[in-house]
Design a protein around this nucleic acid. Structure first.
Lengths: 139, 139
DNA sequence: TCAGACACTCTCCTTTTGGTGCGTACAAAT
DNA sequence: ATTTGTACGCACCAAAAGGAGAGTGTCTGA
């Protein structure tokens, strides 16, 4: 797979039958990226910034909800390192730092759209599946 | 956001302006689902089963690569519980168990398509971003 | 003068994650 | 009689994730 139409500029890439004989180094990098990016906090921060545009540290934390300061700092820093967010420090007192998605971050958030939609669409199917599983385990 | 065209059957859902005033219970459930589903092993297993169709335990492990038996069992069980894979036990000796995606699992794997494509398309941008970040940290 | 806002950092602690290796059941093949 | 194959479960252990809470520096408002 790895195949779907998301936006027009992706379609060109899809014309080639996808080199499944990919160089292992690239494959490892891609897996590493997936490992970092497919993270709960990363996804929630991505969503918050996508929806709200630019946010300051504390606002971002509230918008995400249930995240500790530690995790927020840590995740946002890694996202900065990977070029997903831009962190702007205004050297004033009290400190003022704000966060915004880079174009790369925006594109990732676009890509995650499908997963959000999926989760919203199928959450009741999953709930039901869990109940069925639980019943079968008992009976 | 949470908006993108992936397949025709999703478009109908996109017509409504998306209730952003969602019931918090549902929101928590969705976040929980995202937390479970946005997992490295889950994604890799999903991909393997999508590409290969049906696989037995050992084959699945080899196809995923670098996963311990423990993690494989654990992840695949959770996926079964959430209704993503169907686990079929053939009561023969030696034991024979095989795994296949359910329609729900297929749809999730569809939804993740965009993320895989994104990772493949932008891995060099990320690599470059990391290098830039490292340089700025030093200089 | 004292608290509060801001954006953290640091330390301590618990929980979770994940790997390794051993055990198991049983028949067929050697 | 012993080994092999299969799909695990279980116990043990190390490492990583992640939460709670205190501390920091500096200015502003009460």
């Amino acid at each position: 797979m790895r195949r779907a139409i998301i936006d027009p500029e992706m379609e060109e890439q899809l014309q080639s039958p996808v080199p499944d004989h990919v160089d292992p180094e690239i494959e490892a990098l891609v897996d590493d990226i997936i490992g970092k990016v497919a993270d709960k906090w990363t996804m929630l921060i991505l969503e918050a910034l996508q929806e709200q545009g630019t946010l300051r540290f504390t606002q971002l934390g509230k918008s995400v909800g249930g995240i500790s300061q530690k995790m927020l700092t840590q995740t946002v820093r890694r996202m900065e390192e990977d070029g997903l967010v831009r962190r702007t420090v205004h050297p004033v007192i009290p400190p003022h730092v704000d966060y915004t998605l880079t174009p790369l971050g925006e594109s990732l958030s676009q890509a995650f759209c499908g997963v959000w939609i999926w989760a919203e669409k199928h959450h009741d199917a999953i709930k039901q599946a869990r109940q069925t599983f639980a019943r079968n385990r008992k009976g």
